[in-house]
């Protein structure tokens, strides 16, 4: 697979997923984007939507960057109702399962699946316990899936970017689904000069699409310009 010829992008219609879809389309890639109003935790709805978007063929690459904006609301866990906990923590996990399960039916052998997530779970952030729980769950679900789909030469990897970049993408002055970007304590200064997280992600997506990356699966690639260097 020299380049990804058909890319399915699953987003909530804002943030880094929407920006990645727009940039891929602008440069001439064939991009299939899900409707932001699609309930990604509804297996029947997701199956129907992917079936009608993809048709009888397959896609070469799937980019999944879809965390419901309600997960970004900062609040102590003791202030959350059962419904709020569910929406912020468990709904994103459910959507990851449902989407990945349905992706299995539309991705070509040798295809690339890339999840984009915020870096919050790597270090943990106070008042974002539900989001940190969800992100870590999704990241490890991706690893398990990478092990399962390896026999079809499908790779599954995760790219993490800083929370503000995840929520806003290119739309740095925009409205991240009606939720303020939470304040994440500065855990370190970036080693590299500032730049566009969308550019950084696109670079990694291109790299992961090359034959040279065929052996990379289950990996976490952190595109935070060296802010958090994992042990």
């Amino acid at each position: 697979m020299a380049t990804a010829s058909r890319t399915l992008v699953i987003t909530t219609g804002s943030g880094i997923g929407a920006s990645v879809a727009e940039r891929l389309r602008d440069r001439g890639d064939v991009v299939i984007e899900t409707d932001p109003s699609l309930d990604l935790a509804n297996a029947h709805a997701v199956s129907g939507a992917l079936g009608s978007l993809v048709g009888s063929g397959t896609v070469d690459r799937v980019v999944l960057a879809a965390i419901d904006p309600s997960a970004f609301r900062a609040a102590p866990i003791t202030s959350l109702s059962e419904e709020e906990w569910d929406q912020a923590a468990e709904y994103p996990m459910r959507t990851a399962f449902v989407v990945l399960q349905q992706v299995h039916t539309v991705i070509a052998d040798g295809g690339r699946v890339v999840l984009i997530l915020p870096t919050v779970a790597t270090t943990g952030v106070a008042d974002l316990v539900p989001l940190c729980s969800a992100v870590e769950a999704i990241r490890v679900m991706a690893k398990a899936v990478a092990r399962r789909w390896g026999a079809r030469s499908i790779t599954v990897n995760t790219i993490e970017v800083e929370l503000a970049a995840f929520m806003l993408g290119d739309d740095v002055e925009g409205d991240a689904g009606g939720v303020d970007v939470p304040v994440v304590p500065v855990l370190g200064q970036p080693a590299l000069p500032p730049g566009s997280a969308v550019d950084d992600v696109l670079g990694l997506l291109d790299m992961l699409a090359t034959p040279a990356a065929a052996a990379i699966t289950g990996a976490l690639l952190v595109a935070d310009r060296g802010t958090v260097m994992q042990p």
Binding site: P76, I77, A89, M93, V120, A121, T122, T123, G124, V125, A126, D127, L128, V129, L131, C132, S133, A134, V135, E136, A137, R139, V140, M141, P185
Partner: peptide
Amino acid sequence: AAQRGFVRALARE
């Protein structure tokens, strides 16, 4: 894994 993300965040909280 969710529990590990939970631990890191709640430890700070």
